[in-house]
Structures are given as structure tokens and as C-alpha cells.
């Protein structure tokens, strides 16, 4: 049986919420490992890992700089140069935070990279707010490569007209303007044409719609989604209740 895209999203979302609520290092590491295993099993690891690294490496480095080099609350000083104090508490705080954020990022990326976008849009495209959100999501994901390609073509065209990017901030700004203005202008023009075409096909209509793509769903999955959402809410509630009771 195929997994409904909303079930996948609910599973990833509630795993992320529960990991944040639990805030325990072993759970964070376990969730990260599970996310990696899932993405290897789904065959998306090759695309997901670079995306995860692009997010997590700067974040981890930043956490290390912020807490590793200066943690005024820390008592166990490991090394000190002038104002820089490396403390054990700072390093362990940075490690815990990095593990927690990594778990959330990895599980959400594992979900979004194995999701079939057409299925998700078909599942969302009831009318009204869900349809509009589905349109924005699908349209962005399909426009990304197209717009990147168009930006590249514009750069080539301007270069063939003699655009040379010299050093210095003013030259760079002028070069940016030469490439950005045609890009934005053509995008705004296109959007106007697309709006007229969509409106002519009843984009804003609130009547019933027919979808040619049917995403299989089952009562079991619907129930599972409900359970997952409730589990996430319960984790938040338990954690906040403990917090309020403890302080």
C-alpha cells in the first residue's frame, strides 16, 4: 500500500515535535539515525545529504562559536585566551542543541525529499484555502529550476552584450541591476498572463472540482494521521505542564 503524502507529513511533523519536546540527547541521536536510515531505504540519501549539510554545517559551526567560545554561565573552564573562555558547559549545551536541531532537520528533510509533489498537490487540491496553498507550493517547486535557467540565460545574454563584472561594490551593484531587472520584469509579465489564463479556467471559483489524479487513502491511514497529530499535541502539553509545575 502506498503511503498517503499527508500521512508522511504528519509522521515527520509529530516526530519533530516530540523530539523538541523531549529534549533528550539519546532520543535526538536516535531520531537522526532513523531519518538517515529511512532516506537510505527510500533511495533519496544522495540528494538529501547535501541539502542537510548545507543547513546543518553553518548552524553547527555557529553554535560552536557562540557557546563554545563564550558561555558566561559556564564554570568548568577548559581554556582561556583573553575574553574567550571555552567551558565544558558551553560545549555540552552546543552539542545538545545541535543534536536536537539536526534530528528535526533530518526527519523533515527525509520526509520532504521522499514526498511526491504531484501526489501532495492532488491530496491538497480540494477547493478554497487548501487548493490555493497547493497551487503556491507546486508552482514554486516547478518554477525554481525554470527561473534559475532563465537567470542563467539573461546573464549569458548580458555578457554577450559586453557585461564584465569588475571588482568594487558599485560595479557589482550595476551588474546585479543589469541582470535582475530583465528577470523580474519578465517574471511579472508572465505572472499577469498566467493569472488571466487561470482566472478564465475558474481559479477563484468555489464550486466543485474534478481531479484526474486520485491518491489512494484508507481509513487506517486517516486514523493514523489523527493519532500522530494528537501525539504531537500531547507531547507539547505534557512538556509545558511539567514546565509550569516545575517553576
Amino acid at each position: 500500500m502506498r503511503i498517503h503524502p499527508l500521512t508522511g507529513l504528519a509522521a515527520a511533523g509529530s516526530a519533530a515535535v516530540i523530539t523538541t519536546a523531549a529534549a533528550s540527547l539519546p532520543l535526538s541521536v536516535a531520531v537522526s539515525a532513523a531519518a538517515l536510515a529511512l532516506s537510505v531505504a527510500a533511495g533519496t540519501a544522495r540528494r538529501m545529504l547535501p541539502a542537510a549539510a548545507a543547513v546543518l554545517l553553518p548552524l553547527g559551526l555557529s553554535l560552536l562559536i557562540v557557546h563554545g567560545l563564550s558561555f558566561p554561565e559556564g564554570l568548568t573552564v577548559l581554556a582561556q585566551w583573553g575574553p574567550v573562555r571555552v567551558t565544558a558547559e558551553g560545549l555540552s549545551f552546543a552539542l545538545e542543541r545541535a543534536a536536537q536541531v539536526s534530528a528535526v532537520v533530518l526527519i523533515l528533510l527525509a520526509c520532504s525529499f521522499s514526498l511526491s509533489v504531484p501526489d501532495l498537490v492532488a491530496a491538497l487540491s480540494a477547493r478554497g484555502i487548501r487548493g490555493r496553498f497547493g497551487f503556491v507550493l507546486a508552482s514554486t517547486l516547478t518554477l525554481l529550476p525554470a527561473i534559475a535557467a532563465r537567470a542563467e540565460r539573461i546573464r549569458q545574454a548580458q555578457e554577450s552584450r559586453g557585461l564584465v563584472i569588475r571588482r568594487g561594490i558599485l560595479h557589482r551593484a550595476a551588474a546585479f541591476r543589469l541582470q535582475a531587472v530583465p528577470l523580474v520584469l519578465s517574471l511579472v509579465e508572465d505572472a499577469g498572463t498566467r493569472a488571466a489564463a487561470l482566472e478564465a479556467r475558474g481559479f477563484s471559483s468555489t464550486g466543485p472540482r474534478t481531479s484526474y489524479r486520485i491518491v489512494p487513502d484508507s481509513p487506517g491511514q486517516r486514523f493514523l494521521r489523527l493519532v500522530l497529530v494528537l501525539a504531537g499535541v500531547a507531547a507539547v502539553a505534557v512538556r509545558l505542564w511539567h514546565y509550569a509545575g516545575g517553576s
Binding site: I129, R132, S139, L143, V188, D190, A191, G192, A195, S204
Partner: peptide, 29 residues
């Protein structure tokens, strides 16, 4: 806010939103 605003926007604006998102993402990334 999204639930409140998105249904009220005209199609000409809804169509521009993905374009804006792509500009945000490409430049921000």
C-alpha cells in the same frame, strides 16, 4: 494569517507569490 488572507487575494497576486518565493529562496540560499 495565511488562512485569513490567502482566499481573499485576487488571482493576479496569488500567481505572483510563487515568483516571490523563488526570488527569496534563490537569493537567500
Amino acid at each position: 494569517l495565511i488562512v485569513a488572507v490567502l482566499p481573499t487575494l485576487p488571482a493576479s497576486t496569488v500567481v505572483l507569490i510563487p515568483v516571490a518565493l523563488v526570488l527569496n529562496i534563490v537569493l537567500g540560499q
